[in-house]
């Protein structure tokens, strides 16, 4: 049997092949569009960060293309910049205490909203959540006025209070939303099995909202860490990191700033990893 003889019998095959090819090409084209779209979104999000990190290792002082060489000089310079190091510590200090304070107030507030019926509860909830819609500048000015009125000296302490106030709504929203999803029967079963209110709180309720509390804490920390408007009004002589960067930017973008930025990106990545690890057993239990 020769190749030619086979042709008529398989006459239809090339047709269907072509249709298949067309269909496949269509599918490929569709997939390609999707991938380009997804790629564009990711590029939009991450190219600026990539540029920042890349230029933090650039040998030249100017932000020009092509890059001239690889260096750790800027990081070395950072390590000697006392102002910047102090600002970083200040930021970590403020973010840690603001987060702790807002959690200490926010988690019980969310619990109260969820579990206790009291007169004016609806109004209380709206009032707690309102500051989330309030521009930081308003929070800053109003707190500044108040601190002045009561004769407080501006310091990192006032910044912490200001941040905690602004972040409270974030924590309450997140924790309250999670509490709403925890079945009522858990607390009832706990009580039924002989637990008192505190035992139910610590053994049942809090473990079931753990991930929301951790998530709210991390978010608060990040928001506090790079907060400028409220800090601007409430800080005394102490500078936080974003304030310091902002003030040095007036002299142009320096490679040191890029290096700081790259370090913050690295620190954020580590935080995200830590939270992922902390929340892992929880999410698999769901």
């Amino acid at each position: 049997m020769s190749v030619f003889e086979q042709k008529p019998a398989g006459g239809i095959a090339p047709e269907t092949d072509r249709a298949d090819v067309a269909k496949r090409l269509g599918a490929d084209a569709e997939a390609a569009v999707w991938y380009i779209g997804i790629g564009a979104i990711l590029a939009f999000l991450y190219v600026p960060i990539g540029v920042l990190v890349a230029y933090s290792f650039n040998a030249s002082r100017s932000l020009s293309w092509p890059m001239t060489g690889f260096t750790f000089d800027w990081y070395a310079k950072l390590a000697q910049n006392e102002q910047l190091i102090e600002a970083t510590w200040n930021s970590l200090y403020v973010a840690s205490f603001a987060t702790a304070l807002t959690l200490v107030i926010g988690v019980p507030a969310a619990l109260a909203l969820d579990q206790i019926d009291f007169p004016g509860k609806g109004v209380f909830r709206k009032l707690v959540l309102l500051p989330i819609a309030l521009p930081g500048i308003i929070t800053g000015i109003s707190m500044l006025t108040m601190f002045r009125l009561f004769g407080f000296n501006l310091s990192l302490g006032t910044v912490i209070i200001g941040h905690a106030t602004a972040l409270l709504a974030v924590v309450v929203t997140q924790v309250y939303a999670r509490l709403q999803r925890v079945p009522r029967s858990y607390a009832e079963a706990s009580s039924d099995l002989g637990a008192n209110g505190l035992q139910t709180l610590f053994l049942i309720t809090l473990p079931n909202i753990r991930s929301a509390v951790i998530g709210a804490g991390l978010l608060s920390f990040t928001l506090s860490f790079d907060e400028i408007p409220v800090t601007f009004f409430l800080t005394g002589r102490d500078n936080t990191l974003p304030m310091y960067i902002w003030s040095t930017l007036r002299r142009g973008i320096t490679p040191e700033i890029n290096a700081v930025g790259a370090l913050i990106v690295a620190a954020s990545a580590i935080l995200i990893l830590i939270s992922a690890v902390l929340l892992r057993d929880r999410s698999s239990a769901r």
Binding site: P183, S185, E188, A189, P207, N208, A285
Partner: peptide, 10 residues
């Protein structure tokens, strides 16, 4: 014994 059993997931 609760309708949804109310077993503690954690």
């Amino acid at each position: 014994v609760f309708q949804d059993y109310a077993l503690f997931p954690h």
